[in-house]
Amino acid sequence: MAKIKVGQIVGRASYNCDIVFRVRNIEGNMAELHGEDMRLVADAPLSDLVPIEEKVRKRLEKRIRDKEESCYHLFRQDRKLVREKSEFEVTSGYTKKNSFFEMPGKVLHIDGDPLYLKKCTQVYDRLGVPVYGVHILEKEMPLQVASLIEMVRPDILVVTGHDAYMKSKGTEQELKAYRNSRHFVDTVKEARKVVPYMDHLVIFAGACQSNFQSLLKAGANFASSPDRVNIHALDPVYVVSKVSLTPFMEHVGIWDVLKTSLTGKEGLGGIETRGALRRGMPRYNDNAEE
């Protein structure tokens, strides 16, 4: 049997290699695993780990990339319809098209995984959503979120990373049974001390199998995971991008958010929320320094 190393891509034999992980840390005969595309953290004995062959990995990656591209194109299609509606409303009575400009809501994305953060910021850029991304370990997030909000002054906050529900440590209602839900809950509470109102700061919080109910009670607009299932690494991006690119005079329906996500209602949910995009006229060339 090949020796398992930190950074290696593996699957768990006992789970038929259903999820692709990368080895984050090894202590003795146990390995800490982080999902390669799912925001899940798990422990497993080294004897249960199976190295994923390059050919198999590429096939799995292609399947996931195809799903991500399908989600991206669905989002862009939806965005096009919203923008056409905006253009009709804003330029009514004007002969010149596109005479207005848009200011999407700014996102502060705090992520416990630096590789996921990089993937997420790339998608934000593709979607045209302004983002300030920060990698912080989940346990440190409650200590730093307030100062980051004061510095960045975002319209939308994302608090995510890795999580997992551990049945052996308690019921689904108990925060002690989760890897990082307590840290996410505390981070949301600290953020709400700075900006109490849900329409002034929209918050997405959670990762795989997170305590959905506790996150909403803490003050999140959107959270994971209602059915304690795994969520995709990019799900937070599509949820908050919908808010960022929806005019602030309109509400973002929950189904409108879920239909452009990769996981759906089993892994994501929330409350009706006002959009964060603002439109103005006339259109101008922005060469001014900030």
Rank of each mutant, 00 (worst) to 15 (best):
D43V: 08
P45S: 14
P45C: 14
L46G: 09
L46H: 05
L46T: 13
D48R: 13
L49I: 08
L49F: 03
V50F: 00
V50G: 01
V50Q: 04
I52A: 01
I52P: 01
I52H: 02
I52L: 00
K55S: 02
R59W: 04
R65Q: 09
D66M: 05
E68T: 11
E68P: 00
S70G: 12
S70V: 06
C71G: 07
C71V: 11
C71S: 11
Y72N: 07
L74G: 04
L74A: 14
R76N: 12
R76H: 13
R79L: 15
L81V: 08
V82D: 07
R83Y: 04
E84C: 10
S86I: 15
F88H: 10
F88A: 10
E89G: 04
S92M: 12
G93V: 11
G93H: 06
K96D: 06
K97L: 15
N98P: 04
F100E: 09
F100T: 15
F101Y: 12
P104D: 09
G105M: 07
V107L: 02
L108I: 11
H109F: 12
H109S: 05
I110E: 06
Q122S: 03
Y124A: 05
D125R: 08
V129H: 02
V131E: 03
V134L: 09
I136G: 00
L137Y: 10
L137N: 10
E138N: 15
K139I: 14
P142N: 06
L143E: 09
Q144F: 07
V145I: 13
S147H: 04
I149G: 00
E150F: 02
V152P: 01
D155G: 00
I156V: 09
L157F: 03
L157E: 01
L157N: 03
L157V: 12
V159K: 13
T160K: 12
T160C: 12
G161D: 10
H162P: 03
H162M: 07
D163E: 11
M166Y: 14
K167E: 15
K167W: 05
